[in-house]
Design a protein around this nucleic acid. Structure first.
Lengths: 259, 259
DNA sequence: GACGAACATGCATGATGTTGCTCGTTTTTG
DNA sequence: CAAAAACGAGCAACATCATGCATGTTCGTC
């Protein structure tokens, strides 16, 4: 038992380095070495690996956060649940947009995972009502247009009647939306009527609608419906989605992708 | 922060030089040497490298910012100059709002300092076009309504014609605004016409207009005017503001507070 | 329960990068 | 035209880095 308290698991260190770098945009090797109670050599190896992942850039004496990393973390709620499925779903959504399109990005963690992949598309125009999407693009990335509205803290989105005006005067090639509940019979549902109102508007102004939803949403029905199965053009989910449901969507002319 | 006198990290120095050059468009070598606490030789090497990256152009005795770099100081509260003045100005603005008011908060670091003081007013309604303000209230605080629009990264605000709709359908008891340039003769000016457009709208829908501006803004005039002295009801600044200017504002029936 | 492979960590060493100083040259200023 | 300031190049001192090797731990396997 050489180390007290936390027997520094490498992944845990990496996470702490990311957190520290998010707060203060630069960090020195010996500073990290002291805080994390490991040798400078280990820190360098960590930085080397994190640089390969694009999280940071090494400089002599330490490292700086990569461009585009937000300065302060927004509280991470459910982004870690089913993270790998969400990432795979987001990856599968990429072929549905072109580099110069105008698209709509909804709130929700799966859509946020998609947004993170769009930082390298500067010619894209993103319309969104999500604070977290806007924040993800605050440093660099596509052109961002935010629909106004009242902040709903639970979902970190701007919703309600005030969002009507901006959404009414914009049109999108594709809308990428998430949902709380999803079934063929009851359609797509969410917990808040104001949120449903805004989603409905976005869908109405999109030429194509792509739903990103992990399999856990299937069979759930929430309070407010914002779309029916026939509104969808594409449904992207993971392999654990119930086959019977998927078949129904396919029959309704929805392109179904299960990653 | 354990930052003791900043033991180096070249990248950090480079960033600070860029920040300084954005505010004041020229910088002298020995001035930088004193501020950053390194030898003039090191400063010269830094300038040499930054010139290769096109950030600045060297001249005898120092360097000037390259063409195309915006003259607006970078939105960065950590390194921002006159942080204590900004805090004092924000504090002095508090008496101008009631706990149940609907108010407008502009972009800009001084207004952001005010926003941070409003987290304990849950019955307040805040209308804003600032991503940073929305982010400050993302966890808790007043009711937040965001005006839509296109993200302007430099100021981290949403501006332009799309902001018209929401602002046109809301009214505020007080609007707290910042500025880039300020003089009695030329009025209040900012660098971006789209930003000016949005500020102008907010001012038009406010019963009272309170300007928060540190003394460094006096005498500067930027591209786009968004208000004249007669639009102001209150001007809050710090003690180093030029007395002659302040007197003119007082004569125009503006309540002037110098903290 | 014991053994061995795989891995992570820490230390030592030669290599590389950075900094501040000196000195001769160039530029500005009066 | 001369004095003063600023500049660039080279050098020594120092910090940081990458690599190889030894140690300790965690598994899996028998």
């Amino acid at each position: 038992m050489s180390t007290d308290a936390t027997t520094g698991l490498a992944a845990e260190r990496h996470q702490r380095i990311r957190d520290l770098l998010r707060g203060q945009r630069v960090a020195r090797v010996d500073e990290l070495s002291e805080v994390l109670k490991v040798s400078p050599a280990t820190i360098r190896r960590d930085l080397e690996e994190l640089e390969r992942h694009g999280v940071l850039q090494r400089v002599h004496g330490g490292a700086v956060a990569s461009e585009g990393t937000p300065e302060e973390p927004l509280f991470d709620d459910k982004t870690s649940i089913a993270a790998s499925e969400k990432e795979a779903i987001a990856e599968a959504a990429l072929p549905f947009l072109g580099p110069r399109d105008t698209i709509y990005l909804d709130g929700g963690s799966t859509v946020l995972a998609l947004a993170r992949r769009l930082q390298c598309f500067p010619q894209l125009t993103v319309v969104t009502n999500s604070l977290r999407v806007a924040h993800a693009f605050s440093g660099t990335g596509p052109r961002v247009i935010l629909a106004g509205g009242e902040l709903r803290r639970l979902s970190q989105t701007f919703v309600g009647p005030l969002s009507r005006h901006v959404l009414a005067s914009t049109n999108f090639a594709v809308a990428f939306v998430g949902t709380v509940g999803l079934s063929f019979a009851d359609g797509l549902t969410t917990t808040d009527p104001a949120e449903a109102f805004t989603k409905e508007l976005a869908i109405a102004h999109a030429q194509r609608v792509v739903l990103l939803s992990d399999s856990a949403k299937f069979g759930k029905t929430s309070l407010a419906r914002f779309a029916t199965a026939s509104d969808l053009d594409v449904l992207i989910t993971d392999r654990r989605a119930p086959a019977a449901e998927l078949a129904q969507f396919r029959n309704a002319d929805v392109q179904v992708i299960a990653v």
